[in-house]
Structures are given as C-alpha cells and as structure tokens.
C-alpha cells in the first residue's frame, strides 16, 4: 500500500513536472535523464538481476540510435517505424555478441563486453560512408506529429517529447516488473546467486543469460533511438565505453537488483554532473569522489539504504527485499 502510493506520487510528479518547470534547459535534462534511466534499467537486468556486468550498453544505445536515424533518413521509413525496428536490430546485434561472450564469466565477461563496446565505437567512427564518422549525422527527423483531436503533439517540441519518453519509460518499467516477478526473473536471480546450483536445478542457464543480455540491449537500443530523434544529431561520442560505465554506475548508485534503483541512479548520473557544474573543473573529480564514497559507505546503493532508513523510522526491522 505504502509502496503503491509512493509509485503513484512519483508518476504524478513526473507528469506534472513539465507543466511547472518551464525552463527549457531543465526540461532538456529531464528528457535525457528519462532516456538514460531506460538504459540503466536495461543494465540492471543483466547486471543487477543476472549478475553479469556488461560494459556494452553504450554500444547498444549507439546501434539503436544509428539504426533508427539511418532507417528514417536513408530508407525514408516513418520515424515511428524506425524507432520500433531499432530495438530489434539492436537485439539481433546482441544475440551475435552475447552468444559467444556469455560463455565466459566475471571479469572476463566484463572485459569482453568492454572490448565489444570499443569495436562498435571504432566502427561508428570509421565507417564513414554509412555513419559519416566523427562529424556525425545531422538533421535527424523528429517523430511524426500525432493529432489527439483536442491537441496536436508536435514532437520537435520539448514538452511533447518529454511525455513520449515518459510513456515509453513507464511501458518499459511495466514490462521489466513483469519479467522480474515472473519465472524468468526468478531464474535470473538464481543464476546471479549460484549459476552451478541453478544449472543443477534444471535451469538452462545459457538461455536465460542470453535473454537477459538481449533484453537489456534492446532497452538500450530503444533509448538510443529516442535519443537520436530527440537530439536531431548524433555522433559516436555519446556511445563510447563511457556511456556503458555510466550505466553501470547508475545501477550501483541506485541499488542493483532493485526495480526503483535504476530510476534514481539513472537520473542521478545525468543530473549529478550538471548539479556539480558550479565548479566546472572540479565537478568530475567530485563526481568520482561521490562514487567512491557511495560504494564504500552505501554498498547496496541509495534506494535500499533509504528504504532501510524508512523502515527503521516506521519501527520495522530493515528488510532486504526492496522492490
């Protein structure tokens, strides 16, 4: 009950936000935060629930962004169609990348995925005939306007795009919640806790791992598509390994293996560097320090820490099962 009302409040706040805040810059940041939360939620599936740290979310975001942009620009597909196809293309790429790399575990897996991210980045920079390389793709179209009868949503404006991203994110959250609470989610968590036991208990681990990897990649692909059609311009820079590392940070910061953690963590990884902008040069140093302090002092992440605190204030024992 308490949890349901908290969720309702959060959604309500997200809906009202662009009506209250009229500063374009804040709205811009909010859209980027929503997009990045989606990437973080994807990373959470493979990293938080399955226990495989993938450093390739940035690459998948890039594949999604470039596929959607190129489909709409080169093939002239409607933007909505390209945004729907982009996650599928990303998923195919993830199957190709994931099938061999998921045979290895732990640090090996992390490093292989990091290398994959760098491969994708180098290809984006060097395949100039397709991607136009470093200077990037300009004038990517916005999604076609939708007429709701009483109002026309023109997505080249910030506010409608904010709502588009919000709706997408809510849908993603719903799907993720369903998956996590299903048998699949249980299997994933079993793999995280002890893959050998899970295998012995009759779970075909490789299928579940591949599913988690591909699903997380397609979320990143969708986020990438949303990013491309929002910004109207993409170049390889935002899809480097840095983006993947940020996604990992988002998961850890918020609370890995929790549904709400990536919301907080994803938003923070976008907003924190901006908030620290007061001291331009020092902000990334401060950002690094905050990370280290969080990991040392709140190793389970912010959301479980706050939930524990809230539980303690209400006189309950701190619980471990925070959703």
């Amino acid at each position: 009950m308490w949890k349901a009302s908290a969720v309702a409040c959060l959604v309500a706040a997200a809906i009202v936000f662009p009506l209250i805040v009229t500063v374009n810059y804040f709205l811009h940041l909010a859209i980027l935060a929503l997009i990045f939360v989606m990437v973080a939620q994807g990373a959470n599936i493979i990293q938080g629930y399955t226990g495989y740290v993938s450093i390739a979310q940035g690459a998948f975001m890039g594949i999604g962004a470039y596929s959607s942009a190129l489909l709409s620009m080169r093939l002239g597909l409607p933007v909505w169609a390209s945004m729907a196809i982009a996650p599928i293309i990303t998923a195919v790429a993830a199957v190709i990348a994931g099938y061999p790399s998921l045979r290895v575990k732990g640090h090996y897996f992390a490093i292989v995925t990091l290398a994959m991210n760098m491969v994708v980045f180098i290809v984006l920079v060097n395949w100039i005939s397709l991607t136009k390389g470093e200077p990037g793709l300009p004038s990517i179209p916005s999604p076609e306007p939708i007429n709701l009868g009483f109002v026309e949503l023109a997505f080249e404006k910030r506010r409608p795009y904010y709502y588009l991203t919000l709706v997408m994110l809510l849908a993603v959250m719903a799907i993720v919640t369903l998956i996590v609470r299903s048998r699949i989610g249980q299997a994933l968590q079993a793999i995280r806790q002890n893959e050998v036991f899970a295998e012995a208990a009759g779970i075909a681990c490789w299928k579940y791992k591949l599913f988690a990897f591909v699903f997380s990649a397609s979320l990143a692909g969708l986020a990438g598509a949303l990013y491309a059609h929002y910004m109207g311009f993409i170049n390889p820079t935002p899809f480097s390994a840095d983006a993947s590392l940020n996604a990992i940070l988002a998961v850890i910061l918020g609370g890995s293996g929790t549904l709400t953690g990536p919301l907080v963590g994803g938003a923070l990884t976008v907003l924190l560097p901006e908030m620290l902008r007061v001291a331009e040069v020092y902000r990334l140093i401060a950002y690094g320090l905050i990370l280290i302090l969080v990991v040392i002092f709140l190793p389970r992440g912010l959301v479980p820490a706050v939930a524990d605190l809230a539980a303690r204030l209400r006189g309950n024992k701190p619980g471990k099962d925070v959703a």
Partner: peptide, 17 residues
C-alpha cells in the same frame, strides 16, 4: 568485485581530471 570496479572507475575520473 563489482564494487571495487566502481571504485576503480571513480579513481579513473579523479586522477584523469
């Protein structure tokens, strides 16, 4: 191990900047 990895990322940022 992931925690020490995050620490490493934080350190990277700090030293780099």
């Amino acid at each position: 191990p992931i925690n020490s990895f995050i620490i490493a990322l934080g350190l990277t940022l700090i030293i780099e900047k």
